[in-house]
Design a binder for these strands. Structure first.
Lengths: 257, 257
DNA sequence: CTAATAGTGTCTCTAAGACATTATAGC
DNA sequence: GCTATAATGTCTTAGAGACACTATTAG
């Protein structure tokens, strides 16, 4: 919808690499259209392409994202969305999965392409076009490797972000919008919960992301009416009160909210 | 160990470092992780980046798109979505507008980034990542330069497409989905109509894109209730029947459907 | 006066939202 | 029996969809 500018940034390449860009003769033939002729690839510099991955999870009853601290110019000491170059034989999604694996060690999580940010000048070093993905991680699996001792990688509440490098603030806002919209008409929320969960926990997901309180009875009525939940029969006992039923998401009932 | 290299080294930083890798010796020393070595930008080929623009318009009471005929390998003689390389100092949106201008001569039309397609192998010549935009053109303005004598540029119904090059079939399906969805909750449809139009014409836009008949009374009731239309006072007389009121879109009333 | 399309209102059904009480556990 | 949270139903209102007749023009 709206055009945003680019983002990611992480660093990128240097001038040197630009000069070194190899030219494949096969590309010679490349033309995507008549116009392509005008832009013979051999005489053009190529932008760098990176994939950034916004990893989101519910932690401490808050919507948090993983950021890394930059250690050098530009935006030294500011926080940034993790990302890296796309390998020449790697799909964009594969690059995103690689990032995810490197940062969190998790696999098989929800991953969606968000938007491509490519304004010239978003990175002062060189032209970088970034394809941004976002991932939804359930906090339970994440716990496993929660304790990173790295001081330059950390989780932040989307509601209390530090100063961000490049146009990463804008990217996060864009992602939050996407997430909020999809929450309303898809079953995306379940990706933030472990396999079994209570209705209260599900409601928290919605409340935290939409950033507003929801009515308990209306919420449950709506969710139950869709038949996307399966009662596991188990209950979650915690605290000094009535235990809550544990449910499981039933993807078979691919019902749209 | 592993933990450390993943969380710290690889992850982020090194990703970052990748981007920065080259040149600053200080950084070099700082991050010398395995990954950094692997992704030293200097030894990596860069993908080509193109912007393709799917130009859509209502013509002959049909939803049509502009395609160009390829004249050489690969996909010789097949039809493709127009596109071209992104100039090194040009934003993605600017590149899309340039394409649009080159192909149709129109400016100031609705333009939206659709998705980025980048699977290796989608183009047999080299790695090409394409950022796809779609544009909505109102047929009236388009008439002006409707008569292109180029035999390799033509409009096609999205419902009767020729054989398409690359993954362009998939791209068109993706765009059609996006358009259909947005039709329901935005005022995007007005971009396909000239400044003044009748309610029947507006209904055609919906019917053609959604590919189904709508109820006349319900449709009008809904549109009118949003207050996004302004009666121009003028009427459109054509044929031997009661003339229809001409309306104009009132963007001030940014009402969501 | 005929042909062709514009324009209009009611009823039903479903979904969203407001709202308060009882149930069950630990201690 | 006290505290804390789980679980549950009704009413009102708004919007979606089904549905048929009158109005206005050219010829």
């Amino acid at each position: 919808m709206e055009e945003q500018s680019e983002a990611t940034g992480n660093g990128i390449n240097n001038v040197q690499s630009l000069r070194e860009v190899p030219i494949k003769s096969s590309e010679h033939a490349q033309r995507n259209s008549d116009e392509a002729r005008q832009y013979d690839v051999n005489q053009y510099e190529r932008p760098s392409v990176t994939v950034d991955v916004l990893m989101m999870s519910l932690r401490q009853r808050d919507l948090q994202i993983l950021l890394i601290k930059r250690r050098s110019w530009p935006y030294e000491n500011m926080w940034a969305i993790p990302g890296g170059f796309v390998n020449i034989n790697e799909s964009l999604e594969a690059a995103a999965k690689r990032e995810l694996q490197e940062e969190t060690g998790v696999q098989d999580v929800y991953l969606e392409q968000l938007y491509t940010f490519g304004d010239p000048g978003r990175d002062p070093r060189t032209r970088v076009i970034t394809v941004v993905y976002f991932a939804l991680l359930d906090s339970e699996r994440l716990q496993l490797r929660a304790a990173s001792d790295a001081t330059d990688v950390d989780w932040f509440s989307v509601y209390e972000l530090p100063q961000l490098a490049f146009d990463h603030q804008e990217i996060i806002e864009y992602a939050l919008n996407r997430l909020r919209n999809k929450l309303e008409y898809t079953t995306i929320a379940f990706n933030l919960l472990p396999e079994q969960f209570t209705l209260r926990e599900l409601q928290w997901v919605y409340e935290i992301i939409l950033h507003k309180k929801l009515d308990k009875r209306n919420f449950r009525k709506k969710i139950v009416s869709t038949n996307i939940l399966e009662d596991t029969g188990a209950k979650k006992m915690e605290g000094t009160h009535r235990p809550a039923r544990l449910y499981r998401f039933n993807p078979a009932a691919e019902h749209k909210l």
